[in-house]
Lab assay of single mutants.
Amino acid sequence: MAEQVALSRTQVCGILREELFQGDAFHQSDTHIFIIMGASGDLAKKKIYPTIWWLFRDGLLPENTFIVGYARSRLTVADIRKQSEPFFKATPEEKLKLEDFFARNSYVAGQYDDAASYQRLNSHMNALHLGSQANRLFYLALPPTVYEAVTKNIHESCMSQIGWNRIIVEKPFGRDLQSSDRLSNHISSLFREDQIYRIDHYLGKEMVQNLMVLRFANRIFGPIWNRDNIACVILTFKEPFGTEGRGGYFDEFGIIRDVMQNHLLQMLCLVAMEKPASTNSDDVRDEKVKVLKCISEVQANNVVLGQYVGNPDGEGEATKGYLDDPTVPRGSTTATFAAVVLYVENERWDGVPFILRCGKALNERKAEVRLQFHDVAGDIFHQQCKRNELVIRVQPNEAVYTKMMTKKPGMFFNPEESELDLTYGNRYKNVKLPDAYERLILDVFCGSQMHFVRSDELREAWRIFTPLLHQIELEKPKPIPYIYGSRGPTEADELMKRVGFQYEGTYKWVNP
Rank of each mutant, 00 (worst) to 15 (best):
R175Q: 09
Q83I: 08
V108E: 07
L55V: 04
N153E: 15
V68F: 11
L75W: 14
I162M: 11
N185I: 14
L20G: 03
L137D: 00
Y118T: 11
K82V: 14
L75P: 10
Q178M: 13
E18H: 15
L43A: 02
L61N: 02
E206G: 06
S189P: 13
A115W: 14
F237P: 03
E18A: 12
D30L: 09
L140A: 14
I168V: 12
L235P: 01
N153M: 14
S179W: 03
H32I: 14
V213K: 05
S29C: 15
N226T: 02
A115G: 15
Y49V: 05
K46G: 06
S188Y: 05
G245M: 10
K171W: 00
I255R: 01
Y112W: 09
R120C: 12
Q22F: 06
K238I: 04
L142V: 08
A134S: 12
E63L: 14
R166E: 02
P172I: 00
T243I: 11
N105R: 01
G59T: 02
I167T: 08
R219C: 04
R57H: 15
D58C: 09
S184Q: 13
A127T: 06
T51D: 04
P92V: 09
D194Y: 08
M212G: 04
P144H: 01
L235S: 03
A90T: 12
R81W: 08
V169K: 00
I256Q: 08
I33K: 04
G131E: 13
F216S: 00
G247I: 07
A90K: 09
F26V: 14
I162E: 14
H201N: 03
P223L: 09
I255V: 14
L128R: 13
N185P: 02
F138K: 03
I220V: 07
A115F: 15
H32C: 07
Y70V: 11
A149W: 09
A2T: 15
D228Y: 09
I230T: 10
I36M: 03
G59M: 09
H32M: 09
D42F: 03
S188T: 08
I15G: 08
N210R: 00
S188Q: 05
G163C: 13
P86F: 08
Q111P: 14
F173R: 01
D42W: 01
K45Q: 13
Q119N: 09
S184H: 08
R246W: 00
I234H: 12
K47V: 00
